Amino acid sequence: MRITVSGSPGSGTTSLARYLAEKHGLRAISAGEMFRTLAKERGVSLAEFGTLAESDPAVDKLIDARQKETAEAEDDIVAEGRLSGWMVANADLRIWLSASIDCRTVRISSRDGEGEDEARRHTEERQACERGRYLSYYNIDIDDLSVYDLVLSSERWDVDGLGAIVDAAIASLHE
């Protein structure tokens, strides 16, 4: 089984991917974690690294290619990342998580230890930067949700509620 979990920053994709990996014995791979690790290694913020990625397509293309190659080659995997639903051609289930910018800002502020105003500004800048890069590199409109099998509100349900919905979808795929 190959599952992709995508969504805007702070929507809970990492939490859901971890839940699914643990519950269903899947290996989790995360484009966001790769991106964060590379930013940290270079000693820059996510926003600064996003700006670098905007000027150097090799950054995104390396992360995207690695995730795509790994996810398409292995069975029993959950690929988490903004473009995973678009990039993993042989996915069995594609999920998009949504939440308002207000909700996501609070989560990101708590996670990253910055003020809510700063978190909101960074999140909006990051989204705009990513949207432009994805259109430019791959001709993908990240706001086009037509490739997803499930579009779920992580504002309405917590990770256990989301997990229960996805568990039911997985069970129906096995019937």
Rank of each mutant, 00 (worst) to 15 (best):
K40C: 05
G32Y: 10
C129M: 15
T37L: 13
D92L: 04
Y19I: 06
D117Q: 14
L173T: 03
H24W: 11
F35V: 06
D149N: 15
E114D: 08
D141C: 07
Q127I: 15
E48N: 05
M87E: 00
L16G: 03
Y137S: 02
R131K: 12
E130K: 07
S136N: 11
I170Y: 00
E125R: 13
G7W: 15
G43W: 02
D149M: 03
I142P: 04
V106N: 06
S109P: 02
L97W: 00
A99N: 04
T37I: 09
G12W: 05
G85V: 07
S45D: 04
R156G: 01
I108H: 06
S154E: 10
D75E: 13
E74Y: 08
R121H: 09
R121C: 04
R131V: 07
D158E: 08
A31N: 04
T37Q: 13
R133N: 09
E33H: 13
S136A: 15
E125A: 14
R133G: 01
E74W: 07
H174N: 08
D64N: 11
V166Y: 09
A164R: 15
V159Y: 13
L16H: 08
F35E: 03
L135T: 04
Y138S: 07
A31I: 08
L93T: 00
P57Q: 12
R104M: 06
G50S: 13
I29K: 10
S55I: 13
E33D: 14
H174D: 09
D64H: 08
T37C: 11
A99W: 02
S8G: 05
I170A: 02
D158Y: 10
V88K: 08
E22S: 12
D92F: 01
E175R: 15
R18F: 08
A47D: 10
I3P: 00
R156N: 13
P57A: 05
G113A: 13
S84M: 10
D60V: 05
E155Q: 14
Y137K: 05
G115Q: 12
E116L: 06
S84V: 02
L83V: 10
R36G: 08
E74V: 00
M1V: 04
H122R: 14
D141M: 04
N139Y: 10
R133C: 07
D92Y: 05
W157Q: 12
I165T: 13
S30G: 03
N90W: 00
T70H: 01
A168G: 07
L93R: 06
D92E: 11
A21C: 03
A73M: 00
R2Y: 02
S15E: 14
R82L: 06
D92M: 02
S84P: 02
H174E: 12
W157V: 08
A119W: 10
E118L: 11
D64M: 11
L162V: 06
S110D: 10
